Amino acid sequence: MSTTANVQETSVDSEVLTEIRGNVLIITMNRPAAKNAATEAMAKDMAKILDDFEANDELFVAVLTGAAQTFCSGMDLKGFVRGERPSVEGRGFLAITEQPPTKPIIAAVEGYALAGGFETMLACDLVVAAETAKFGIPEVKRGLAAAAGGLLTLPSRTHRAIAMEMALTGDIYSAEFGHAHGFVNQLVPEGEAVEAALKLAEKIAANGPLAVRASKRVIVESSEWDESEKFAKQSEILDPIFTSKDAKEGASAFAEKRAPQWTGS
């Protein structure tokens, strides 16, 4: 396996691990003894990793997961008591909840995705979860609130009533509940979330990278557009795609019955 410029595979004792498979970056939160509870150091590591991912033209998609069959149990409370916050100014919890990458990112969830871990999952574009995964924003049980995006993002990823129930009860919910209510895309057998997420990532990575990023941008930003300006604003983002070299390559590859060779230009 070869690495590309900027992003480097990390050593097994790091709190955030990276691995590259083709055009896909795998990011693994790595504090298994603490159920991958997020620390300030993890947030700083994530900021650098995500910056490098964005800057690397050879990486098209990322998969975010957790070590030892757990996604992330939220904020490290011992660090919180010491005055630490696992956030980066302007970027949010684990440097992702306020400013996700412009490239697609898929959460591969085994075990628990709770509190900030659940909010980190919501910052991803797609979610593949094991059938045994558990979700929740239990902050109210600790006298806190889901301030890392859960209260803002969850209503748009499911129904308002479901978001209200989860936020106000602080209860833990099953993977089946998440799938039924729209914030989980795929359910897979226990232990298979990463491989299933990689298959999904490879499907996305086989497509034109400019078109993929532009499509994500329209979906993310269009909820804030006035009805009268939607198509005009969409055109500003999509028109350059139709005149790109990749668009011509995609048409040529289809006509010639071969796989396209994307250049991202």
Rank of each mutant, 00 (worst) to 15 (best):
I96F: 04
V140D: 08
K134S: 03
G182P: 10
R21Y: 08
D226E: 15
L238I: 13
L198K: 06
Q261E: 15
N30L: 04
Q186A: 14
A148F: 09
I105L: 09
G74R: 07
D246G: 03
F53R: 03
A206N: 11
I241F: 09
S252I: 01
T120D: 04
E190A: 15
G149S: 09
L25F: 04
A180S: 15
L122C: 14
G150L: 07
F177W: 06
C124Y: 04
K134A: 11
C72D: 01
K44W: 05
M1F: 03
G92Q: 08
I219Q: 13
S235M: 10
A33W: 00
I105C: 12
L151W: 00
V16C: 11
S14K: 11
E89F: 03
T18W: 01
A108I: 01
P101T: 15
G143V: 06
N185T: 08
P100G: 10
E229N: 08
V212T: 13
E165R: 04
A55G: 14
A211Q: 04
D239I: 13
M1W: 02
A206M: 07
A43P: 01
E119R: 02
G116N: 00
E236L: 15
E139Y: 08
G22V: 03
L168H: 07
L144D: 12
L168F: 00
T10H: 06
K78R: 13
L168Y: 02
S156A: 13
K35V: 12
G74T: 05
E224P: 01
L238E: 12
V188C: 13
A253H: 02
D13V: 07
A34V: 04
I96G: 04
L200A: 13
L238R: 09
Q261I: 09
K44R: 12
E249F: 00
G111S: 08
I106D: 09
L200T: 10
A180V: 07
A129G: 14
L200K: 06
S87E: 14
I162Q: 10
P86F: 01
L144Y: 07
L94I: 14
V220S: 15
G92Y: 07
I172W: 01
K216P: 12
V16D: 04
S235F: 01
S215R: 00
G66S: 10
G182Y: 03
T132E: 06
R85T: 15
G66I: 02
K103F: 12
V24G: 05
T70W: 01
D246K: 00
Q234Y: 05
V194N: 07
L210T: 13
A148H: 06
I27E: 07
T153Y: 01
K103D: 05
A37P: 00
A145C: 03
K141F: 04
E165I: 02
A5S: 12
E15P: 00
G264T: 06
P100D: 10
Q69H: 06
A145R: 12
A146C: 05
S223K: 10
Y173S: 02
E84I: 01
G90H: 05
F242T: 11
S2P: 12
E110K: 10
K48D: 13
A175M: 08
A33E: 15
L200W: 07
G250M: 13
E176A: 13
G250Y: 02
V88M: 06
L187W: 06
G22R: 03
G74Y: 02
N36I: 01
G83V: 05
T132D: 12
A247E: 11
